[in-house]
């Protein structure tokens, strides 16, 4: 065993892997944000609340209808995605032509309302949710003990991220979508229902948040404030990656997870500020973010 900066290499490998796992959550959440911002130009501040809704949906499904983790992984994002569609139809569609600030304020207000209702109905202390039986236990990798559930988190998150990137950047549907954001009038002239595409895109972004919420339920505390604690970091990830850049969101999500993981070994007290320090530096050097195009 050799040492790197006084830390045994084993411990370091472990931390790198842990960083990747946390990065999976950042990537999943910032992906949804990037899709919504890239396609709708809305800064979706209710993303954290929608992530929390996903976790709560999973909890409520288990409690009231006995549906476990696997059905929840599909149904919860669908349900929360539908609420997203409703929100888009009722409110957001009127804001596209206005300044970003209006969308931000609206979604922020929504987030406060959703959190308030959740707190009122379900309390602030949190609710229990256990790791599904199939994913209990873990593997001894020699340098660390890797819980099976964490391994699943990385695989699932990478799959979703790559699939989303592929759909938007490499398929015809994605091409319509990008064209619709670029020039809605022209795309409409080709007979494509632009408002519907936009609505569904928002629903999809929200469903991604809910998916992350269900993924988080067995390992993080399921409580009304679980989203607001995470969302600020995720916004920093999106800003560093470049607002609206899907690849940027994914890469920086995983990358910052690793950086944060390493900080937790070398200087734990700074682990929740390191991302913001990086954000400040990136903004100074590249104001559009690492992968962003200058407007």
């Amino acid at each position: 065993m050799f040492e790197i900066f006084g830390i045994p290499s084993n411990a370091l490998f472990g931390q790198l892997l842990i960083g990747l796992i946390n990065g999976s959550f950042y990537a999943l959440l910032s992906l949804g944000l990037a899709v919504i911002f890239g396609m709708l130009n809305i800064i979706n501040f209710s993303h954290g609340a929608q992530y929390m809704m996903g976790a709560f949906a999973a909890y409520l499904m288990l409690k009231y209808s006995g549906l476990g983790y696997w059905p929840a992984l599909i149904i919860a994002p669908l349900l929360v995605g539908i609420t997203g569609v409703i929100v888009e139809r009722l409110f957001l569609q009127w804001l596209y032509k206005l300044d970003h600030l209006y969308g931000l304020l609206l979604t922020f207000g929504l987030a406060l309302i959703i959190e308030g209702v959740a707190r009122n109905q379900l309390g602030s202390a949190g609710l229990p949710y256990v790791v599904p039986d199939e994913l209990r236990g873990g593997q001894n990798l020699g340098f660390m003990f890797l819980p099976n559930y964490r391994a699943w988190v990385i695989v699932a998150s990478l799959t979703i991220c790559i699939a989303t990137w592929f759909i938007i950047e490499r398929t015809r549907l994605g091409a319509y979508l990008r064209a619709a954001t670029e020039n809605p009038a022209l795309v409409r002239a080709f007979g494509i229902n632009v408002p519907r595409i936009i609505t569904l895109t928002y629903g999809f972004g929200v469903a991604l948040a809910a998916f992350a919420g269900v993924m988080a339920a067995p390992i993080y505390n399921v409580s009304p404030q679980m989203g607001s604690e995470l969302i600020i970091v995720v916004f920093a990830v999106v800003v560093i990656g470049g607002m609206g850049s899907i690849l940027g969101a994914i890469v920086t999500g995983f990358g910052l997870g690793v950086v944060e993981g390493l900080t937790k070994v070398f200087f734990p007290e700074a682990s929740n500020t390191v991302i913001f320090v990086i954000m400040a530096i990136v903004l100074l050097v590249r104001p559009a973010g690492l992968f962003g195009r200058r407007a």
Binding site: R150, E269, N272
Partner: peptide, 20 residues
């Protein structure tokens, strides 16, 4: 010992340190 910032979501890094 390890000093963990308030409202930390993920303790796995710290738990690994505790484990080792």
């Amino acid at each position: 010992k390890v000093r963990v910032p308030l409202n930390t979501n993920d303790f796995s890094s710290f738990l690994l340190q505790a484990q080792s």
